[in-house]
């Protein structure tokens, strides 16, 4: 899922400084699960903004609402009226949620309350870690299901650099070395021979390097939309 974390309150305050009426919009999907922008966080954010701006002597009207999925336009219709009534919408969705609202509400001023961090999973209570960089051409089948693009600090494809030490990456002791993980897994499964092949340069065109990406599925298109 998409992992995000809240921006510091001072930054959020600056983003909504010009507005009198603020609508905080949470999202019920990824950011709820990672405790960054669900119903609870939206309520706390709204209360904090109310309190902080009151203390500053210019108390704002702050309301909050949560949609099930901020990244799909159909879920946004239900908040159209509320959005129309405020000066600024503070999205607690991921970067996609913010943009979905911008595209749906052409007159609304929408600002992000979160930093969208990565695609990952919770590894322990209160800990999330990156797992995928959405490179568009998945090679997990070569690496025993451990992603060197997202998890090796240098996205190496042919094995560990010289910085791998005691299982962690050279960048710091908190980061496991992806290639140590790959090596251990393939070696325990008796498939080390897979690491001996030279992996050719990656086609990064399917990643962000090829420009903004889009998928069109003709099988799912409606007849009216066909050219």
């Amino acid at each position: 899922m998409i992992i995000a974390e809240q921006k510091p309150l001072a930054e959020v305050k600056a983003l909504v400084a010009d507005a009198q009426k603020v609508l905080v919009v949470g999202c019920g999907t990824c950011v709820t699960v990672c405790f960054a922008g669900g119903a609870r966080e939206a309520a706390i954010m709204a209360a904090s903004l109310r309190m902080a701006t009151q203390l500053d002597g210019n108390g704002k009207e702050v309301a909050e609402v949560v949609v099930q999925r901020q990244c799909e336009w159909e879920y946004l219709d239900e908040i159209a009226q509320q959005v129309g009534e405020v000066d600024v919408v503070l999205s607690l969705g991921c970067g996609i949620g913010v943009q979905a609202m911008v595209e749906h509400f052409s007159n609304a001023w929408v600002v992000p309350g979160l930093n969208t961090s990565f695609l990952g999973l919770p590894t322990e209570q209160g800990v999330w870690a990156e797992r995928c960089a959405a490179c568009g051409d998945c090679i997990l089948g070569l690496t025993g299901g451990i992603c060197p693009i997202a998890r090796c600090s240098k996205s190496l494809l042919n094995g560990p650099c010289g910085g791998s030490e005691n299982g962690h990456c050279e960048i710091n002791a908190e980061v496991p070395c992806a290639w140590q993980l790959i090596y251990d897994r393939l070696s325990s499964l008796g498939k080390l021979d897979r690491l001996l092949e030279i992996q050719p340069p990656k086609n990064w065109r399917t990643a962000r390097d090829g420009g903004p990406r889009k998928i069109v599925r003709p099988d799912l298109r409606l007849p009216a939309e066909e050219e």
């Binding site: 600090s153 240098k154 996205s155 190496l156 094995g159 030279i198 340069p201």
Partner: peptide
């Protein structure tokens, strides 16, 4: 060479490249 990660150096906020790895560079 792969190269030391930029976080070690004097421009830790830089974007890195790592388009190829060192083995792919040798081959190229």
């Amino acid at each position: 060479l792969s190269g030391d990660h930029q976080t070690f150096g004097n421009h830790p906020t830089a974007k890195n490249v790592f388009d190829l790895d060192s083995i792919q560079m040798v081959q190229m």
